[in-house]
């Protein structure tokens, strides 16, 4: 009975051990279309901003190897102990209950590991939180259940628009269900974009995985974050805080283009969205 169990235990443990390297190589997710989730993806998306790359490095180079090692180490110890100190192998239990040097070691080593993690982690944190001098500022407002964008007048904007999900029935080939929107928000590539985030009703959260950006949109507060997209492309995000029944249906699309194209778009949008954004103003006034 016990023998069978030991075998089962070992076999189960081996199966689990085989699973852990799967997280190990998760960082090496296949290079696919950037800016959107990868089907069956195992790891972080391809990052296109300095903060995103920093996050990717922190996770893939520091956190992931360390936690995988710890998991395998504990698993290895458990398997060894079960194998070596089961009833058959070791009928007489020892009376060992203290070993001060050992206890000091297993307190100190985790402290050192945590200190080691904290250095790159805190450096990245400062980079995320301290917004550098920005050339473009966008105001993003969360609503139940869509996002509104405003581009300020003094930077060539002076218009605002709502970004709503395209319903499944209107999707063109190549467009993504639940992710494609009617109005994309454009930003110039390789420039620092500051994003001011707030909400008109309940809490939402603005998040774009490829940027390493996630920031809550809270009524009565103006949160700030930033990104600098280093590669032209279309980047998808979603709402990351539960906000009611259509929480899953308010995607974010940011298209990074060259400065020239961005300027053209600004000029076009000024015409296109002239007089728009009224809904946002009414909603704000009604509160």
């Amino acid at each position: 009975m016990v023998y069978v169990n030991r075998q089962m235990l070992t076999r189960g443990a081996l199966a689990a051990a085989a699973g852990i390297p799967a997280i190990l190589c998760a960082g090496a997710a296949l290079a696919q279309a950037e800016g959107q989730p990868v089907p069956g993806g195992l790891g972080l998306p391809n990052m296109v901003t300095p903060v995103g790359l920093g996050t990717q490095q922190l996770y893939n180079m520091v956190l992931m190897p360390i936690i995988s090692f710890i998991a395998l180490f504990v698993l290895g110890l458990l398997i060894y102990v079960c194998y070596r100190f089961n009833e058959q192998a070791n009928p007489i239990p020892s009376k060992l209950t203290h070993n001060t040097p050992l206890e000091i070691i297993w307190t100190l080593i985790p402290v050192l590991i945590l200190l080691f993690i904290s250095v790159p982690s805190l450096r990245l944190l400062a980079e995320q939180v301290e917004v550098p001098e920005a050339s473009v500022t966008i105001k993003v407002t969360g609503n139940q259940w869509y996002w509104s964008y405003k581009y300020p007048e003094d930077q060539g904007g002076g218009f605002g628009f709502d970004q709503m999900m395209k319903p499944e029935s209107e999707l063109q080939p190549g467009e993504l269900r639940l992710l494609t929107v009617d109005n994309e928000a454009l930003v110039p590539v390789n420039e620092v974009i500051a994003v001011h985030i707030t909400s008109n009703d309940v809490i939402h959260a603005f998040g774009v995985p490829s940027f390493g950006v996630r920031m809550d949109a809270i009524p009565g507060r103006l949160n700030q974050t930033w990104f600098k997209v280093e590669k032209e492309g279309v980047y998808y995000g979603q709402c990351y805080f539960i906000c009611g029944k259509d929480h899953a249906y308010m995607p974010i699309v940011i298209r990074a283009v060259s400065r020239e194209k961005y300027n053209e778009w600004l000029a076009e949008s000024k015409q296109k969205f002239a007089g728009a954004g009224a809904r946002v103003r009414i909603a704000a006034a009604s509160r």
């Binding site: 989730p37 195992l42 899953a248």
Partner: peptide
């Protein structure tokens, strides 16, 4: 874990096909 690394938000009744 993989879903989270890929960016899937929690508390979603429906998710992108990826």
């Amino acid at each position: 874990h993989f879903l989270g690394l890929g960016g899937m938000p929690r508390r979603y009744i429906d998710y992108p096909d990826a």
